[in-house]
Design a protein around this nucleic acid. Structure first.
Length: 465
RNA sequence: GGCGAGUUGGCGGAGUGGUUACGCAGCGGAUUGCAAAUCCGUGUACAGGAGUUCGAUUCUCCUACUCGCCUCCA
């Protein structure tokens, strides 16, 4: 099977061929840890989690190396520390754990490596020295800057810009010590109240971009397969990563395939604090929206299209997931799940540039044909549940069904009598109460089946007991 | 201003150079004590214009609009 992926670098869909099938390597830009992850932060995590799962399935779980960093040195963090009076390390440690917890709730597997920027300062310093030695960077007023003119003909290739275009359209304030307005910071000086490390250029801290170049090199080598992130990172972050890495390691390719997910919107608008439609994953989880529902909404839209988070979609996803659980509860043989493979249609859909929408449609087809075991298997594969969680949800549903089952017998008995007397008052009364508790009542000729639906409320059945 | 992405039926959302997914909602029918579920049937969409083509929703160009990046933000 060939996995096809859209490569931003070439703006085309390519057949994915790993450098080393025994060690497929992927790097995804992770969060800056200063606050709870918001909904938008979660999109790349979920998207690349699906890709990670597909790669593991295709090349073997032990033959994929997935790296996602934590940026734990950044001026936003410093600002947060200054404003809250808390220690930087305390903030970053806490936020890092929040991130892992929240992403775990969305079913994201943890990457093989989750490097923290602060643990790779020596590698960054070494890389910067290399860049200076090769004439791609220069020191100025305590800063070290990357000289885009030293790589002018390549710089901007990923995002489709030329240095000249960017200078023409730039709105940035240009620091006077820059040789070219587009030159970006590799290292900057730290005052005593800011975190800093000793370096050949004095006490300072790294610029934003160098960490990804240094850490991907350290953990994945000078050439690796896939680099991912949100498309807002394309410029300048990824462009600068490429410049740094390719100039420091000219014999390597750096990342061969670049993948970018589109942005997320909320009710048709950009999620932003100023619009007041900003919320975190934790906010949603606390509202009782389960992680698998959030994941389902995400996967219903292709990753390269803007995804609109709406209350309506969330509600629909919740029903759909509930419907899956019903079918799993009724038809899944959990003993077989362990030996079950994901549907070929799901794999094919994902292999087609991560067409998660089509994969999700396949789940619905399995549901409609009551293929509970296969459905369970695919739900697990796509990360909606782990095995334990799914089995628990399934059992819980079965228990509820068992509780209402005697009522079905009673209703059937009432119905049998009513058919003789032609007086259906009692039957209808009972049915109304069941419906009010969100229990579907399905009456065939000789049988009554009660099915608790989403938001069923057994408390409302007290009157029937 | 520069760069990029997008515009599909009531809504959501795939996909394809020709046979017009799918989901939800809707409508008609079968079925039902009434329903539900199910089954059958049904709605003839691809922003607008021009071009390429035997034929374009699918390719090219233009226009409009939306969104993103260029500034901390995935």
């Amino acid at each position: 099977m060939t996995i096809k992926l859209y490569n931003t670098k070439t703006r085309s869909r390519v057949d994915f061929a790993p450098i080393d099938p025994d060690n497929v390597r992927m790097y995804v830009c992770g969060p800056t840890v200063y606050d709870r992850a918001h909904l938008g932060n979660a999109r790349p995590v979920v998207v690349f989690d699906v890709l990670y799962r597909l790669l593991r399935h295709t090349y073997g779980a032990d033959h994929v190396t997935y790296v996602r960093n934590f940026t734990d040195v950044d001026d936003k963090i410093n600002a947060r520390a200054a404003q809250s009076g808390r220690a930087i390390g305390e903030i970053t440690a806490e936020t890092t754990q929040w991130f892992l917890d929240d992403m775990g709730a969305l079913g994201a597997l943890e990457p093989n490596h989750m490097p923290r920027a602060t643990q790779y300062i020596p590698q960054m310093v070494a890389m910067i020295e290399e860049l200076i030695a090769k004439g791609h960077a220069y020191e100025a007023e305590g800063h070290v800057l990357f000289a885009v003119d030293s790589w002018r003909e390549h710089y901007g290739a990923l995002s489709g810009r030329s240095v000249d275009d960017m200078i023409a359209g730039a709105r940035v304030e240009v620091a006077p010590y820059k040789r070219n307005p587009m030159d970006f910071v590799l290292w900057k000086p730290s005052s005593d109240d800011l975190p800093g490390w000793e370096s050949p250029w004095g006490r300072g801290r790294p610029g934003w971009h160098i960490e990804c170049s240094a850490m991907s090199h350290e953990l994945l080598g000078e050439s690796f397969d896939i680099h991912g992130g949100g498309n807002d990172l394309m410029f300048p972050h990824h462009e600068n990563e490429i410049a740094q890495s390719c100039c420091a390691h000219p014999t390597g390719d750096f990342a061969r395939v670049w993948m970018h997910n589109e942005m997320l919107q909320v009710e048709g608008k950009k999620m932003s604090k100023s619009l007041g439609n900003f919320f975190t994953i934790r906010d949603l989880l606390d509202q009782g929206i389960p992680g698998e529902v959030i994941r389902f909404v995400f996967l219903s839209t292709h990753y390269r299209k803007p995804m609109d988070w709406t209350a309506e979609k969330e509600v629909e996803a919740e029903s759909t997931i509930f419907g899956f659980i019903q079918i799993v509860a009724d038809f899944c043989d959990f003993k077989s799940v362990d030996f079950c493979k994901p549907s070929q249609k799901v794999i094919d859909a994902l292999a087609n540039d991560l067409n998660t929408h089509v994969a999700v449609e396949q789940l619905k087809r399995l549901r409609d044909s009551s293929k509970g075991t296969q459905l369970a298997c695919d739900l697990l594969f796509l990360g909606f549940f782990d095995r334990e969680g799914l089995q628990r949800r399934s059992s819980e549903y079965q228990e509820v069904c068992a509780l209402v089952s005697p009522l079905a017998d009673r209703l059937q008995e009432l119905r049998r009598e009513a058919k003789e007397t032609k007086d259906f008052t009692q039957v209808d009364r009972m049915k109304t109460e069941l419906l009010a508790a969100n229990i579907s009542v399905m009456m065939s000729n000789d049988k009554v089946v009660l099915r608790p639906e989403k938001d069923f409320d057994l408390a409302k059945l007290e009157a029937l007991k």
